[in-house]
């Protein structure tokens, strides 16, 4: 587990594309903060997903993912490592959204767990199915859902004060959804017998 965690972070840290992406997201968040535009807010959330998808394709092409299967990790270890990375990404996204304008700032203060929804939708598929086409289809559907949210960005939303129990309830539901997604991925990883 420690090895996988180390592997993920070293991969990200050594990857100049990722560092470039961080700077880019930071600039977008700042631009969003200055212009109060939801375009930049959603860009900050969509870009990590897009990068993750492109890295995933690279993993498949280069055979990294198949090599992982031959290393002596427990089946749930890669899942937990991915979901921990997703959690870190969600914390970063929440911090950036807090900077990215009045609307998102108010929203993220009420629902700081909101970015986890993206991770819960996108992360499980590579563990659940070994059929590459089905994986890609599930990931495209997840990305499509995110794109729909993006197209809703111009709907004027007024964040009204929400009672604290409702806030806590919705945040708890999102966390449960994320954990359920992880449990689903662990179930899939345990069931999987190898690549198709």
């Amino acid at each position: 587990m420690k090895a996988l965690w180390l592997r993920q972070w070293r991969m990200l840290w050594r990857d100049r594309e990722f560092l470039f992406l961080l700077v880019w997201i930071g600039l977008l968040a700042w631009r969003g903060y200055r212009s109060q535009s939801m375009l930049f807010v959603f860009m900050t959330m969509i870009l990590p997903v897009v990068t993750s998808v492109s890295h995933r394709r690279q993993d498949i092409r280069s055979g990294y993912d198949q090599m992982q299967d031959a290393l002596p990790y427990r089946k749930e270890d890669p899942v937990i490592a991915d979901y921990l990375c997703g959690l870190c990404g969600a914390v970063c996204a929440a911090l950036l959204m807090n900077l990215a304008g009045v609307w998102p700032s108010r929203m993220i203060r009420l629902f700081p767990t909101a970015p986890l929804v993206f991770g819960a939708l996108y992360l499980p598929w590579k563990f659940v199915t070994s059929n590459l086409r089905l994986q890609i289809l599930c990931e495209i559907i997840s990305a499509f859902f995110i794109a729909i949210l993006y197209h809703l960005r111009n709907i004027p939303i007024v964040i009204r004060p929400v009672p604290m129990p409702v806030c806590i309830g919705i945040n708890a539901l999102i966390i449960v959804f994320y954990l359920a997604s992880m449990a689903f991925a662990i179930w899939g990883a345990r069931k999987k017998e190898g690549a198709v």
């Binding site: 198949q66 299967d69 031959a70 017998e193 190898g194 198709v196």
Partner: peptide, 9 residues
């Protein structure tokens, strides 16, 4: 790869 369990037999 089948022996290593990477591919599903």
């Amino acid at each position: 790869r089948s022996v290593l369990g990477i591919l599903k037999k």
